[in-house]
């Protein structure tokens, strides 16, 4: 059976157990580009689009469990955006309505592009990813364990990404992305910032400026030092961001390629991170940067 369209998870596991080398297919927006160019010729395909257990999302205590088949369009819907606003923001920057109707969070993870738009916010939220090769054999991995390099992941043959778990309503979140236009663009640089006022912590993750998403830990500590956690405002003057943007710049490990230069990417990441933090902490909006 060269193309299988399982409707349930047990059917999908059966299909993969019989043919572990089958190409897994989610929305197809990355795979088909390569197939159309003749770069991918799998002997068999298991399409996950109809697997009902992978659809939708649910609340589990303080966590949101996001099915791997949740599309970008679905992430933008108010009921989801209210729970994980940074992911809704990121989803809206993906491609076009056509791409957002097809592409999924599971596909974004498995493609493992350095420019994957959901990855910075998932890293900033310290997401857990559940993968499984049978109903009983499940494991939970962090993003950094799952994605180890450009288009490199640690999924075993026969394994499926089931869901992604992030905290619900976790502080204030911002996702910013730089490209040549607002739509239909692969990120030149992107930044996700999460400020957890209850936990008094700041998380900053950078996309498209390294082989995988980068957490800017030193910049996070600097930002946490600069916030007055009793008033939720910036300590000192409005320009007092200290070394924050320099630390973001230092954390980035970009390269020159056909989409941009390393120098511009580093610059864009630092500006975006500072702007995102300003929007969250001071509510001053983009005019401040």
């Amino acid at each position: 059976m060269p193309v299988l369209l399982p409707a349930s998870l047990p059917e999908a596991f059966d299909a993969l157990a019989a043919d572990p080398a089958a190409q897994l297919l989610a929305g197809g927006t990355d795979f088909m580009v390569e197939a159309n160019a003749g770069h991918r010729r799998p002997g068999s395909v298991v399409s996950l689009t109809r697997v009902k257990e992978l659809r939708g999302f649910r609340l589990d205590g303080q966590s949101v469990v996001i099915g791997a088949g949740l599309t970008y369009t679905e992430m933008m819907e108010p009921g989801f955006a209210e729970l994980v606003p940074g992911l809704a923001q990121a989803a809206r920057t993906v491609g076009s309505p056509q791409i957002r109707n097809a592409g999924t969070i599971g596909g974004n993870l498995a493609t493992a592009s350095p420019a994957g738009d959901t990855l910075p916010i998932l890293a900033a939220l310290d997401a857990d990813v559940t993968v499984a090769s049978s109903p009983r054999e499940r494991r939970t991995v962090k993003l950094a364990e799952l994605i180890t390099g450009p288009k490199r992941h640690t999924l075993e043959p026969g394994e499926i990404i089931l869901d992604v778990r992030v905290p619900a309503r976790a502080g204030r979140q911002e996702f910013l992305k730089v490209g040549t236009r607002n739509a239909m663009v692969i990120a030149v640089a992107s930044v996700a910032v999460v400020v957890d006022f209850a936990g008094r912590s700041v998380r900053v993750a950078l996309g498209s400026v390294g082989p995988t998403v980068i957490r800017a830990h030193e910049a996070e500590h600097e930002a946490a030092r600069l916030i007055d956690w009793d008033s939720n405002r910036l300590v000192g003057s409005l320009d007092g961001w200290g070394d924050f943007d320099d630390l973001v710049r230092a954390a980035a490990r970009p390269i020159d390629d056909h989409r941009s230069t390393a120098a511009f990417r580093r610059h864009a990441a630092a500006i975006c991170a500072k702007r995102a933090l300003e929007r969250i902490v001071d509510g001053r909006g983009s005019e401040a940067a």
Partner: peptide
């Protein structure tokens, strides 16, 4: 042929998609 231009747009179960990035065999049903 890479979902960028929209000239191949169709509806799948009522959702707008680029038909160039849909595997035809997986559109059965």
């Amino acid at each position: 042929e890479q979902g960028e231009c929209g000239s191949c747009s169709v509806l799948l179960d009522g959702l707008l998609e680029c038909s160039c990035t849909v595997l035809a065999a997986a559109a059965a049903g």
